[in-house]
Amino acid sequence: MAEARDHAATMDAMYRYQRHFYDLTRKYYLFGRDRLIAGLDCGAGDKVLEIACGTGRNLVQIARRYPSADLYGLDISEQMLVSARAKFRNAASPPRLLVADACDFTPATFGQSGFDRIVISYALSMIPDWQQALRLSIGALNPGGSLHIVDFGQQEGLPAWFRAALVTWLSRFHVNPRADMLAVLEAGSAGARLRFEPIGRGYAWHAVLQTQERIPVF
Rank of each mutant, 00 (worst) to 15 (best):
L134W: 06
A52T: 05
R178L: 03
P67Q: 09
V82E: 15
C103G: 01
R172M: 06
G202Q: 06
R26E: 10
P128C: 02
V184G: 00
A2L: 13
R85T: 05
D46N: 13
W169F: 13
F162G: 00
F110V: 05
D180T: 12
I62V: 15
E197M: 08
A133V: 06
R214N: 14
R195P: 00
A102W: 09
G114D: 14
Q212C: 06
H206D: 06
A187N: 10
P177Q: 07
G111I: 07
S83F: 08
A92H: 13
F196N: 06
A164C: 07
Y28Q: 10
A108N: 07
S171H: 15
I118A: 11
L97N: 02
Q18S: 13
A84K: 05
D101L: 05
C42N: 03
R33C: 11
I149R: 02
I62F: 04
F31V: 09
A207V: 01
L71A: 08
Q212I: 02
A140E: 08
L59T: 01
R89P: 00
G45D: 06
H148V: 03
R172W: 10
I120E: 07
V217Y: 10
G111H: 07
G39W: 02
A84W: 04
T10F: 11
S68P: 00
A102T: 01
I127K: 12
D12I: 02
A92M: 11
D101N: 14
R135L: 14
G56A: 06
T109Y: 13
T106C: 06
A2G: 03
S113T: 12
R214Y: 04
I138E: 00
I37W: 03
L59H: 02
F152S: 07
M1D: 14
G188K: 06
D46G: 05
Q210V: 01
F110C: 07
A192Q: 13
I120N: 13
I199S: 04
M1E: 13
W130G: 03
Q210A: 03
L136F: 06
M1Q: 14
A86Q: 15
L81K: 04
D46K: 04
R64M: 10
I149T: 06
I138R: 13
Y66W: 07
W161R: 15
G188F: 08
V60C: 09
I37A: 07
N90H: 14
R35F: 04
L158A: 09
R201S: 13
A91Q: 08
D41M: 10
K27P: 00
L97K: 02
G144E: 09
I62T: 09
D46C: 09
G56R: 05
H7W: 14
D12R: 01
K47A: 14
Y66L: 01
L24T: 15
Q155Y: 15
